[in-house]
Design a binder for these strands. Structure first.
Lengths: 247, 247
DNA sequence: CGGAATGTTGATATGCCTCAACTAAAGTGG
DNA sequence: CCACTTTAGTTGAGGCATATCAACATTCCG
């Protein structure tokens, strides 16, 4: 878990991701490649940061998934986003000292931790790098807005289909799908705590989606049987993700 | 509606707001004071920007309120945030070209429009100004996260109390309250479309909150009768707003 | 002053939650 | 590697919070 300054897989993953929405010059790329970072491996369900923490570095997901969530009085969790390779789930900590939410691993995950000092230094040298990461945080916010609408204004089946659409669409844009399949080791309980549904309802909704021939979700594997159908069921319009290439 | 370059009320309002969460040097303040802008007055319910637009400037609310919302297929709206004097409800448009949501006036409102060019030029001159506005967009995101949790995991009474707490807390931090009162010209329909409740339920919940002696909402005026009680009912913890001074 | 928008209240319907009992899978120690 | 324990997933029955519908009252606004 030593600091690395060689051009690594971590740098490539971050650069690839930023290029999904931002234009980077050769100098930008060189600067990002020079960022020092450490690697951290997380067990399933392990917290990367907790509510109230004031982390000194931000993470880039290298493999697996992580999720962000609020912890309520009654011990209930509310998840609001899932993150996959290339995402920076706590980039906001750069400018907001104390965490108002936690980040945990969903299934085993590996992240690269980049000290805030490093990033801030990079920002002053090349503002475009800052703008790319700013844009990243703005897309995050767009995803949150969509989640508000999803959980507030859509019936359960639509709601779940929409989440599946988003996950698959983002994964595919990042080259993380295998055919019509994406490994998302999310439990039914977690789906319920994401979509504001009881577990029983989660299960029945999964069954309903399966019977509609659109999508299967089984043992943490999302399999898209009919994308167009799923998009229709899920009322999904990817424009809020603000990615360059249309699928 | 001519462009202005004198130190105006608009500049003061923005600076005051940014200082709620960020430290600004004299040079930062001077730079902000030099920003060119135009004034736009909005009628109640008038859109400032629409879904799909690509605005060339961003707004600072000077008076009144504006709200952000999604428009669904069925014509339903989902509001996700309300903004008051000092807020920049579409600062995200700086780095995300096309709007994935709309912004409208809630009651008559006045905004200052600052061209993106102006802002971008300011950012390269003084990164701290960029960081302050970046932080502003990050607090926005925190508010969205809280809205997800609020609408997904809290019962209706708690949910409404929480929204009222947030509005009052933010208004008070910006000096927009008068005693225990804040003018929020939101209709019941809009409350319903914010909190994912039917209008009938909105009305009954308002009555319930009134009878609990915590808060009154009548004809667009929010009156806090018992702040502590409201905080308790609303399960409200202001830390997610990341403002400097505790109330 | 009249019409439209907003707010109010009651009665009924229903989507989803809760509870409960059970099955299957995965992880653990002997 | 198997027995055991724990966690995850499945299914049915019943209840309830909140939606829906409807009819009316009030306020706003041209």
């Amino acid at each position: 878990m030593g600091a690395e300054r060689t051009v690594s897989k971590a740098h490539q993953i971050l650069i690839r991701k930023l290029k999904e929405h931002s234009r980077l010059t050769g100098e930008d790329v060189a600067l990002i490649n020079s960022l020092v970072h450490t690697i951290r491996e997380l067990n399933s369900d392990e917290d990367l940061v907790r509510q109230g923490d004031a982390p000194g570095s931000s993470a880039v997901v290298l493999s697996g998934m992580v999720a962000r969530y609020h912890l309520l009085q009654n011990g209930r969790r509310q998840y609001f986003s899932f993150h996959m390779a290339g995402d920076m789930p706590d980039s906001q900590a750069l400018f907001i000292d104390t965490m108002d939410h936690a980040v945990c691993a969903v299934g085993p995950a590996i992240v690269a931790l980049v000290p805030h000092k490093e990033l801030m230094a990079a920002f002053t040298r090349r503002p475009t790098v800052a703008f790319a990461i700013w844009r990243e945080t703005l897309i995050d916010a767009a995803i949150f807005r969509e989640a508000i609408t999803n959980n507030s204004a859509r019936p359960v089946t639509t709601r779940m289909a929409h989440l599946f659409c988003e996950l698959f669409y983002r994964a595919r844009a990042s080259g993380l799908t295998e055919g019509d399949t994406f490994a998302a080791p999310i439990t039914l309980v977690q789906l319920g705590e994401t979509l504001a549904m009881a577990i029983a309802t989660v299960n029945r909704t999964i069954l309903e989606l399966r019977s509609s021939q659109a999508v299967e979700f089984h043992r943490g594997v999302l399999q898209v049987r009919d994308w167009d159908r799923m998009v229709e069921i899920g009322d999904f319009n990817p424009s809020y993700l603000h990615l360059k290439r249309p699928t």
